[in-house]
């Protein structure tokens, strides 16, 4: 594959071009080392299918999601309104996010503050590309016979009723897909939502991510598939807790797609 080039909106504007889609990277995707890899993979997919995209780069700022869930509506609306200024300034129409939290916030909570865009999560983009025949699942690693279980992120699943899109990316692999008992609308949270990512859990008998990874590991999977950077952290920590990093990989839908296509 060609070298990855990631244009910013500012660069595009300078060249007098407009992208088909804005890739909203998100804070985890920008700074978290594990999530950065997924961010690059999403770009690889966009570049591979020839979709003209751009990012905001340093003009992007936190959507305000963790502030809002933690009750800080001031901070949320400050973030939201300044992001909306930037997005509207570039006349953005369509956005793909690498994170269900950014997806939910921009899609559902920005319209009321003046930010109206078509927003999709990267798993929905991958689903569309597969449906349109632009992503073929060939020329890469074979997942044939691998046991894969998908963990539904709350802000993609219950919050927005997106259950099938991430599964679509797995169904095309010819892998052995297994569902946890608590899946789809019954899915168990990884433990990071509602700003829990940024604090220690309250006193209890068990950590939520351990409860979740216990359920996943009981299926003896080769891969636990995720599609949220927070879930990624929580599930990976869960696997580490049992020293199973060698046998069980926690991979994002985008990473799996990139591998299957040899990008």
């Amino acid at each position: 594959m060609d070298k990855l080039t990631v244009p910013t909106m500012a660069e595009m504007l300078a060249k007098g071009e407009t992208p088909e889609i804005l890739f909203w990277v998100g804070c985890a995707g920008s700074f978290d080392e594990r999530a950065q890899k997924i961010t690059r993979d999403i770009c690889k997919i966009l570049q591979h299918v020839g979709l003209k995209f751009a990012i905001l780069g340093t003009e992007e700022s936190c959507t305000g999601d963790p502030a809002k869930r933690a009750g800080n509506e001031f901070l949320f609306q400050m973030q939201a309104m300044s992001n909306i200024q930037v997005l509207n300034g570039y006349e953005i129409k369509k956005i793909v996010t690498g994170c269900p939290h950014c997806f939910n916030t921009i899609k559902n909570e920005y319209p009321g503050l003046g930010g109206n865009y078509e927003v999709i999560h990267h798993s929905q983009l991958i689903q569309q590309l597969i449906d349109e025949g632009k992503l073929k699942t060939e020329g890469g690693e074979s997942f044939k016979g691998k046991r894969i279980t998908f963990h539904d992120p709350c802000y993609l699943g219950r919050a927005n009723d997106v259950y099938e899109a991430p599964r679509k990316a797995l169904e095309v692999l010819d892998a052995d897909l297994v569902e946890m008992k608590r899946c789809k609308s019954n899915g168990l949270c990884c433990g990071a939502g509602g700003a829990q990512m940024f604090k220690e859990p309250e006193k209890g008998t068990k950590d939520i991510n351990i409860e979740r990874i216990d359920e996943a590991l009981a299926l003896q999977p080769n891969i636990v598939a995720a599609s949220c950077p927070f879930c990624m952290t929580m599930l990976s920590d869960g696997v580490k807790n049992y020293n199973k990093e060698e046998e069980v990989k926690v991979l994002d839908i985008a990473e799996i797609t990139v591998r299957a296509n040899g990008l």
Binding site: S30, C43, G57
Partner: peptide
């Protein structure tokens, strides 16, 4: 949680990273 708030406010991210480093991943 208060730390997270001040990070969002000052750096535009819930962690203590500088906003100028936001594109380093690329």
């Amino acid at each position: 949680i208060n730390n997270m708030f001040s990070n969002v406010e000052n750096n535009g991210a819930p962690w203590k990273y500088a906003a100028v480093d936001r594109m380093n991943w690329a």
